[in-house]
């Protein structure tokens, strides 16, 4: 039987791969569940603004709260899934949700210009960078 010649480097590569796999899994994460935080968010940059999006279908706009302080943004909300009376369920995959999540974004936020919208189940928050955080051009005399 042919065996592949194994070298120390192969061993090292195998160790490296298993370490990376462990890092990718959330086994060492802070949460007690392995499902990740809700809602999943994406952060984008659009010029100087940071744009946050989250997929949160089926909420009432009034049941989502956004609080901002410096460069911290806190999202919280509740959703109750309801069905008509006198019905039997065949399949339940959507859940009641109650979330509270705080994120740190790179720059401090100009509170007066923050815009939030909720369309088609997607929450979008535009967080403009505070004037004090913007770099200043210095002229040379």
């Amino acid at each position: 039987m042919l065996r592949r010649f194994s070298s120390a480097l192969d061993e090292l590569l195998a160790v490296q791969e298993s370490v990376e796999a462990a890092r990718r899994s959330d086994y060492f994460g802070r949460s007690t569940t392995s499902r990740g935080s809700y809602p999943s968010v994406n952060l984008f940059k659009e010029n100087d603004d940071t744009v946050l999006t989250a997929e949160v279908p089926g909420f009432n706009k009034e049941d989502i709260n956004i609080e901002i302080k410096d460069n911290l943004i806190r999202l919280s909300g509740v959703k109750k899934v309801s069905y008509p009376e006198k019905s039997s369920t065949h399949r339940v995959e959507r859940r009641n949700v109650k979330f509270d999540r705080t994120l740190k974004i790179p720059d401090r936020v100009e509170l007066a210009r923050v815009k939030a919208e909720y369309n088609d189940g997607i929450l979008k928050v535009v967080l403009p960078m505070a004037e004090s955080d913007k770099p200043k051009q210095i002229e040379i005399n």
């Binding site: 007690t32 999943s40 995959e93 949700v97 109650k98 979330f99």
Partner: peptide, 10 residues
């Protein structure tokens, strides 16, 4: 509550 917090991955 824990059950509620658990998110479903796409």
């Amino acid at each position: 509550e824990k059950k509620d917090l658990a998110s479903q991955e796409k």
